[in-house]
């Protein structure tokens, strides 16, 4: 079959599957809302919410209808990007209006952190080469350090910075240097960078990535076809690269949910105005439409990422098309 056609068909099928998943996930989210104990609308709004706001909310979320009909109403609204209005966090604002810039930031930080992680893991894997007993001490230590939850890593990091600044900067008579991460200056890029570092270093992400990447690199390096190419005297680099794209893309896509979880807490610790911070803040203030809207957006991000990964894999590796076509 025509390769491009196969690819388009595969993308179409995946898109359909992704939509199905999104509908399913939104169903789960909606019924989590409906499962609220007692009168749903009282359970999810902060105390003292005026009745007319409650009524509007109930109408927006179809809470005044039977569950299935309510779900259809809500899904129809959400599908157009209308997740209702914020109650507390930014009263009267459309959820999408607040969520959009926050989400952009979160995706940037987590995507950047993942890329950085992949890059560092690849670099280290190449440096380490074949596993040897002597390296186990190093990898063991790395394993131990990176298993710390991101928020603990963030605290260690900021406390270390604080101590460093106190010791070397303030004592020397300087004011806080411009890159000083905590407290946060709104204009500085540094907090995002540090948040990225913490995401890379925490939650066991790095070792997980290193193990995966390393296994893939070693597998390709020791593969017979690479030996054959080497024997012919040709460069093995293009072939190595081509064979690594698929596992790397998979590794990237598979870990996005992990990072999107970690980023929630890290953003909160560093008080970055991302979707994670927004989610937790809205959740604390019981700003229900914002929480639900963000949950749907996070889910959407994961589905889209998996979709993209599938298509990229298929574009690089024709076997994927054959396997799934």
């Amino acid at each position: 079959m025509n390769r491009l056609l196969g690819l388009v068909l595969l993308a179409g099928r995946r898109l359909a599957g992704g939509l199905l998943l999104l509908v399913g996930a939104s169903f789960l989210i909606y019924f989590t809302i409906r499962s609220a104990p007692g009168d749903a609308i009282d359970a999810i709004t902060p105390m003292g919410t005026p009745p007319e706001v409650k009524e509007k909310l109930a109408a927006d979320f179809g809470l005044d209808q039977p569950p299935l009909a309510g779900y259809v109403t809500w899904l129809g609204r959400s599908a157009t990007g209308d997740f209702g209005e914020s109650l507390v966090f930014a009263p009267g604002e459309q959820v999408m209006t607040i969520a959009r810039p926050a989400f952009k930031l979160t995706l940037l930080v987590s995507g950047g952190a993942l890329l950085l992680c992949l890059f560092l893991a690849t670099a280290l894997a190449v440096v380490l080469g074949e596993p040897s007993p002597r390296q186990q001490l190093l990898t063991g230590a790395l394993y131990f350090v990176t298993a710390a939850p991101a928020f603990v890593a963030a605290i260690f990091f900021s406390q270390g910075m604080n101590a460093f600044v106190r010791r070397f900067v303030e004592d020397a008579g300087y004011d806080t240097p411009p890159w000083y991460p905590i407290p946060i200056y709104s204009e500085s890029v540094m907090p995002y960078f540090f948040a990225g570092i913490v995401l890379v270093a925490g939650d066991g992400l790095f070792m997980d990535m290193l193990n995966t990447v390393r296994a893939e690199i070693l597998a390709v390096r020791n593969a017979q076809f690479i030996a054959a190419i080497r024997a012919k005297g040709a460069s093995t680099l293009p072939h190595t690269f081509r064979n690594l794209v698929v596992p790397f893309v998979s590794a990237f896509a598979a870990r996005l949910p992990v990072v999107l979880g970690g980023v929630v807490i890290v953003e909160y610790v560093f008080t970055l105005d991302g979707a994670g911070y927004l989610l937790l803040e809205a959740s604390k203030q019981r700003d229900f439409p914002v929480v639900v809207g963000l949950s749907v957006l996070f889910t959407l991000a994961i589905i889209v990422m998996n979709l993209l990964a599938d298509v990229v894999r298929a574009a690089v590796d024709p076997r994927e098309v054959a396997r799934n076509g």
């Binding site: 989210i29 979880g261 959740s283 229900f288 949950s295 991000a301 589905i303």
Partner: peptide
Amino acid sequence: VGALQLLDTLPRLVFIILVCTIRN
């Protein structure tokens, strides 16, 4: 397989926070 895939797309911490918002 469908059910598993569905559960797998939910971002864990986000969903936990959602549940925490709604329930005790």
